[in-house]
Design a binder for these strands. Structure first.
Lengths: 218, 218
DNA sequence: CTCCAATCGCAACTACTGTAGCTTTAAGCT
DNA sequence: AGCTTAAAGCTACAGTAGTTGCGATTGGAG
């Protein structure tokens, strides 16, 4: 019971449980894509997957649980980080990747649901945090390459540059709900770059522990 | 029927409808503060306000409707924009205002609920957008004063500087759910300032109409 | 003072979400 | 193959969110 989590991946890929999980998670993605987060329901997922609703309730507990699990799966797939030879273009490319990820008619609703679910459930929140941490790590290459090329000063906090670059896009998409123009994206990327150049985003000894994370209930 | 919205404020402040609205909205804030967005319910608000639940459903339709209306009320109250004589400190102050607005034990849950509700309902989304637009306008003085002082180049998009400054905080609070340290805030403010200095955030002729707002359902 | 229109209160009802108790199935082991 | 046990299926039900139709109240106009 204690080791189950780490053993999960060792179980037979064709076992009944695995089959059920697969069916349910795929149904989750499908439901999210066509009904959105607000329209998705546990019973809907159960019906579509052919799995009984009590089973879904038992294993995933709620819509947010389903989304958290789906999010864990999604962490696997890689990201086509750009490599143009110029930080400016690379950063703009990363920001554009983010936007299109939410703009795409099929993937967009799913991605948005992840963000919405993370605001309602602590489990979904950690799943999303881990997902995005992985993405930050991946995208940080863009900055490190720039340092090697001499485009940026060394000692920079690469992931923080990424965060500053994408933050305005997320802010517009999920907080102010303003439209995000191509120019907005360019300005966000270029602003992060300018900040990086002036040394504001240097990596610092993390002596500061003034925590203030936003805890969702449940 | 067509003019009702604009006439709303002209109605007697002590009329029955006004009394009901007041009681309900106050109950909404109270419920949000102690139960949070996820725990708030229309019936709870009705019970606390002493107004029948049918009435609440009829006038506000849902929890999100209640929040949207409460948000409209909240737009009134002013914001203690700092004026230290230095853009750097002023910007940092604005960012700190944002953080504490969500950190405060009584106001925090309410403010967070506004953001969460805007993700679920289109009405709440426009209410929040208008609210934040007002705040951006207020905070922009900080930048304009800096331009007058010669600290920043003229022709700058003052509100965009504010957006870039606060975006990383919102990103951490509501997207990645990472802790927000004092250093994180300083870096966000300083990054926006650096970008502003290098002229990346100049106001531009808005020829770009590549819209991509995030539409919530309902 | 009387009447009109709008709004609110009320009770009953529908539909749906999530749970409980029990039975059945199948994966893995010897 | 036969046995054990964890997990899935099923029925029934409890609780709650949201609706409807109608009667009562209120505020304002003539």
């Amino acid at each position: 019971m204690q080791l189950e989590l780490s053993l999960e991946s060792l179980k037979r890929p064709g076992g009944r449980s695995a089959r059920v999980r697969d069916a349910v998670l795929q149904a989750t993605l499908a439901e999210l894509a066509e009904r959105g987060y607000g329209g998705m329901t546990v019973e809907g997922v159960a019906a579509r997957s052919g799995v009984h609703k009590t089973t879904v309730y038992r294993r995933w507990r709620s819509v947010e649980g389903l989304i958290a699990d789906a999010l864990e799966m999604a962490r696997e797939e890689p990201w086509p980080i750009p490599d143009t030879g110029s930080v400016r273009e690379d950063l703009r490319g990363v920001v554009a990747l983010v936007r299109t990820g939410f703009a795409d008619p099929s993937a967009g609703p799913v991605a948005s649901a992840f963000v919405a679910a993370a605001m309602q459930s602590a489990d979904a929140a950690v799943a999303l945090r881990e997902f995005l941490t992985a993405r930050h790590r991946q995208a940080a290459v863009v900055v490190r390459r720039a340092v090697e090329r001499g485009e940026l000063p060394s000692g920079i906090d690469a992931q923080e540059v990424i965060r500053v670059a994408v933050a305005p896009v997320y802010y517009r998409l999920f907080v102010t709900h303003e439209p995000v123009s191509a120019q907005d994206m360019e300005r966000a990327a270029d602003a992060a770059l300018a900040a990086a150049r002036t040394g504001v985003l240097q990596a610092a000894p993390h002596d500061d522990h003034d925590d203030m994370s936003q805890e969702p209930p449940g």
